[in-house]
Design a binder for these strands. Structure first.
Lengths: 216, 216
DNA sequence: AAGAACATAGGGGAAAACCCTCATTTTTTA
DNA sequence: TAAAAAATGAGGGTTTTCCCCTATGTTCTT
């Protein structure tokens, strides 16, 4: 029986291309395509799927959230993450939530086929580049655990509120007024934020907040 | 005789996918694939090509430069720009250099086929979304208004350099040292940047820079 | 060749951000 | 329930950003 594959990617040209490649292969059947994050769960409830090729950067609801959600309902689902970016935070995040593999969009079709077969056999698969990234991540975990790029300590509820307002261009004064707290308190929160994300100033804080999606 | 197509995209999975789609069509033949900007010219010198599907964001040498170069040597070459981003600057730039069309990676295969046929017939083709972007650009040119949400006036070369360093957390002082210009000059650039993106402070400037991808 | 746009840069001042230390109360968690 | 973490905020200082103003040489563009 053919392996049933669901492709989830917002770039339909990409999704169609992959579909076209896969449909030429024996033993593989593309049973569906999703162009955003929110339509995946409904599809899975109606259709049988063996493997999901999941783009990490989806609109509406990103791949990491989708992965978490899918695994919660279908713990044995085989998810192969596909991404443009070989970024440690993405890789480790989605693997943590149960993805079985991670490949980059610049990997060739032979490797794609290999990944699918490996995943279906219950094993994990990573592009060579990705493997190196993961190794580097592990090294950093062991060594310094905080200096390593990309690690962000927990941001508290209040800090997040302040951060959100900073990104929206409000001044410390204005933030205090909005949250009914003193300017000095807001300054405290700003300080901890700078320290936690390891930024030198507001510019870095905002950049990191957006890069790491620290605010909803 | 079949239309000869060259696909230029650094994501081989994408390029392979497109190839697979196109090869199923009658009258179309994919004669080559390039995974970076620098290998396109050599290929064109050795092979006959009717249409280039050119990714705007290529490594080594980006699509806009490639377009300029190709048109310089092959003025009648049909270039169809393909991009993830519906950004006015990209669109207008590459069209200025002789591309005959611009489509987004989220357009379906019917539209892709339509684009190819239109381009080959000597006409121009744009995705609907792109058309709107262009229109908006023209409107802005005419009215030169700035109130309209999301419109960002052109950032100059120097401003972009400064902006990049701001986002990297350097202070005005440090930026001056790096660029060998006075602190006051950097302040001037910061001022124009704030005015151009319509931000109140650095936080907003950085956010908009990242949102609108003002820096490469 | 003229005008527009760009890059340069100064003075001076107000506002905002940043830094350090310290302390109190509230909330959470082990 | 005691300890830890989070939220609050004050004093007092330095640095950086932001905002006026003006001005000059250079480099596109028309």
């Amino acid at each position: 029986m053919a392996t049933k594959i669901l492709i989830a990617d917002d770039h339909s040209m990409f999704a169609d291309g992959i579909e076209s490649i896969l449909n030429r292969q024996d033993g593989i059947e593309v049973v569906g395509k999703c162009y955003d994050g929110i339509s995946i769960m409904p599809f899975l409830k109606e259709n049988e799927v063996d493997i999901i090729l999941l783009d990490v950067n989806l609109p509406e609801k990103n791949g990491i959230e989708v992965c978490k959600e899918v695994i919660a309902s279908f713990p044995d689902m085989n998810i192969l993450a596909i991404s443009m970016f070989n970024q440690e935070s993405y890789v480790s995040e989605i693997l943590k939530f149960g993805a079985k593999g991670y490949i980059l969009k610049n990997t060739g079709q032979e490797e794609l086929m290999q990944a699918i077969q490996t995943i279906e056999g219950g094993k994990t698969f990573f592009s060579k580049d990705v493997t190196q990234t993961i190794m580097r991540g592990l090294m950093n975990d062991r060594k310094s655990s905080s200096k390593s790029e990309g690690f962000i300590p927990k941001i508290t509820r209040r800090e997040k509120e302040v951060l959100k307002l900073i990104v929206q261009e409000f001044t410390t004064q204005e933030i205090g007024e909005k949250l009914f707290i003193s300017l000095k308190t807001v300054e405290s929160h700003r300080s901890s934020l700078l320290a936690k994300v390891n930024a030198r100033n507001t510019a870095g804080l905002v950049r990191i907040a957006l890069e790491k999606k620290l605010i909803d």
